[in-house]
Write a protein that binds this DNA or RNA. Structure first.
Length: 597
RNA sequence: GGGGGUGUAGCUCAGUUUGGUUAGAGCGCUUGCCUGUCACGCAAGAGGUCGCGGGUUCGAGUCCCGUCACUCCCGCCA
């Protein structure tokens, strides 16, 4: 018989009354009546009430013992009298009459309690993560994470994907995020990089003749964190398929996501496959972002031509339009009767976001006709108002907000306004998951800062144009077989059909100013691999942490991560990063320089 | 790198707007009482560099300047 327990803390029920048992766990809570002491004993599985009367030395010992100490309890399962049963507890019909105890590990006074549902500062939670993780909500989140990963792994294997591990020590690559570097002892002055994703390796797995691959892959990027983005490291369900077209990948992935969200989504509704396909262009036009929250019913409308016509006399906007600006309208239902403060608050918010303000028109039915009201409506002719009504599908009691700026900025801000207003008006149904694919991403964009053409996504994506027509086309017009999976405004995954034609890859890189020799040098492995018979292939890599975050209904990725780094990429528990002894650095032939002031 | 928020007892927070006696509450902790609780109850007590440094003032938790930490956002994240 096991030394510590005969049962766990959630399994003893009425049928066990009379049994002699042994339980082990943490002292969750004590209730000391002087001559009668209740102890809630907790383990991973649940809580069982144990009781002892003041007779013998055990009582005194238990009375002194602090919460979160670990003990094992010997005793009898006894029935609770009717009036002392606790229906909240799975084991609430019985209790353990303590006969003897063993202290397995004593706890000091706690920096934060495990008991209760109060929120605590992250700094303390991360410093004492092992205590934080004992708390019910965190414990459940992490259990959910495990279940989700098992589910995904099982489904991938069922669908004949093979699970492989790819190297953690690899080569730095010039594209993408900042790398984490690892110095080489055997090759002083040279460095490995931790992979930002197994991108090149998974392509090589395809080239190696394996048909379908997946991996729960750690990805390392030295970039700043966000609420939905861990600094340092995160996990992706990395997957790749040979001889696959875009739709093959969608068809493979959609049912897995649908079933996953149905099973673990806490009874929220999930849209059925096939998920809506939205082109990148349409997403930007309608939602102002490439990761739209489709639960939000508001759709943006381009009304530049109305503002540019002689029917509108708003000079500020006209001047901006002349400088290649556009006007995006944000039509909102049933808000024209909102108090002035609603519009003022939005205006102040917009100024706080760095805008010049937020213009708007309210529409009312006056004498059987819908008319515009509000500070800027006087600049509009009757025709302009009716054009606006038509174009924005306005009915009475609606409002329209306007954003005017250069194309990129206008779309981006209109998208933020769209989301802000929907939140203010509670238009977002939080009991739904709304999936969509964003497809047809442009291959390139113009980098305003560097004044040059750059990749807008993955340079290894296949352009949607034949190689022989590639040079004839304006590069900014070229689309890629590049797609994102989006849910409720979160980008859950990026993916692409890859460029498996080595000559074409050189061409693609050439457009951003990288010569053939540059590509050969920096992507040596890939270029070699593509030169000896590569199958057409493609895949994607959904972010595990974000999936768990959505399913656990959390707003922050750290709530679903066992031991996350804080926003400054520090591990407060293990105290990483840390200084390294001089000797270790000498082995690596590394000298550090002081931060300049 | 930039902007916003926060920082007062071990923990959660009040007090800061308008400077003024000994900086408070709840939880936790210590001690005592308590045999049916499950947020047990009752009583007493300990516990403070008001993040840190400087300044203004007769006097600063409160005003000013600087700085640090955490967090949210922008940049960044092919």
């Amino acid at each position: 018989m096991n030394k510590y327990r005969t049962h766990n803390c959630s399994e003893l029920k009425s049928k066990d009354i009379g049994k002699k048992v042994k339980l082990s766990g943490w002292i969750h809570r004590k209730r000391d009546h002087g001559n009668l002491l209740f102890i809630d004993l907790r383990d991973h599985f649940g809580i069982t009430q144990c009781v002892i009367e003041n007779e013998g030395k055990n009582f005194k010992i238990l009375e002194k013992l602090r919460p979160e100490s670990v003990i094992s309890v010997n005793g009898n399962v006894v029935e609770r009298s009717k009036d002392t049963q606790n229906k909240e507890l799975e084991t609430g019909l019985i209790e353990i009459k303590i006969e003897s105890i063993v202290i397995l590990s004593e706890s000091k006074e706690l920096p934060m309690p495990v008991f209760g549902e109060q929120n605590y500062p992250e700094e303390i939670r991360l410093k004492y993560r092992f205590i934080d993780l004992r708390r019910k909500e965190m414990h459940e989140n992490i259990k959910l994470r495990s279940a989700i990963i098992s589910f995904l792994r099982k489904r991938m294997l069922e669908n004949n994907f093979l699970e492989f591990q790819t190297p953690i020590l690899t080569a730095s690559s010039p594209e993408g995020a900042r790398d984490f570097l690892v110095p080489s002892r055997l090759h002083p002055g040279k460095f490995y990089a931790l992979p930002q994703a197994p991108q090149q390796f998974k392509q090589m797995v395809m080239i190696s003749g394996f048909d379908k691959y997946f991996q729960i892959a750690p990805c390392f990027r030295d970039e700043d964190g966000r609420a939905d983005r861990s600094p340092g490291e995160h996990y992706q369900l990395d997957l790749e398929m040979s001889f696959a077209e875009q739709e093959d990948i969608f068809n493979e992935v959609e049912p897995i996501f649908y079933d996953l969200f149905l099973k673990y989504g806490r009874h929220k509704k999930t849209n059925k496959p096939p998920f809506k396909r939205i082109t990148y262009k349409e997403a930007i036009d309608k939602y102002g972002t490439d990761k739209p929250d489709l639960r939000n019913p508001i759709e943006l409308v381009n009304v530049t031509d109305i503002f540019n016509s002689d029917e509108v006399k708003l000079k500020i906007f006209k001047d901006l339009i002349k400088k290649k600006g556009i006007v995006k309208a944000i039509p909102v239902k049933n808000t024209s009767s909102k108090p002035r403060s609603f519009f003022d608050n939005l205006n102040n918010w917009a100024i706080g976001e760095g805008a010049n303000g937020l213009a708007y028109i309210n529409f009312e039915n006056i004498k059987g006709k819908i008319q515009g009201k509000g500070p800027i409506s006087k600049f509009f002719s009757e025709k302009a108002i009716s054009d606006l009504i038509k174009k924005c599908k306005i009915s009475e009691k609606d409002s329209v907000f306007f954003v005017c700026n250069k194309v990129t900025e206008a779309n981006k801000f209109a998208g933020i306004v769209r989301q802000k207003i929907a939140e203010e008006l509670a238009l977002i149904d939080s009991s739904k998951f709304e999936f969509c694919w964003i497809i047809d991403f442009p291959m390139y964009h113009f980098d305003e800062k560097e004044k040059k053409i750059d990749f807008s996504h993955n340079p290894f994506s296949m352009p949607q144009i034949d190689i022989k027509d590639f040079d004839k086309k304006d590069p900014l017009e070229i689309l890629a077989y590049q797609y994102d999976l989006v849910c409720n405004g979160y980008e859950l995954s990026s993916g692409a059909i890859r460029n498996h034609i080595v000559e074409y890859l050189f061409k693609v890189f050439n457009k951003v100013g990288h010569s053939k020799s540059f590509v050969e040098k920096n992507f040596a492995g890939m270029i070699k691999a593509l030169s000896f018979g590569a199958p057409p292939h493609g895949g994607m890599a959904p972010g595990i942490d974000r999936i768990v975050m959505l399913l656990a209904d959390q707003k922050n990725i750290r709530e679903v991560t066992l031991f996350p780094l804080n926003q400054n990429a520090q591990d407060l528990l293990m105290e990483a990063p840390s200084e390294i002894p001089e000797k270790q650095l000498r082995d690596l032939k590394i000298k550090t320089i002081k931060k300049d002031n």
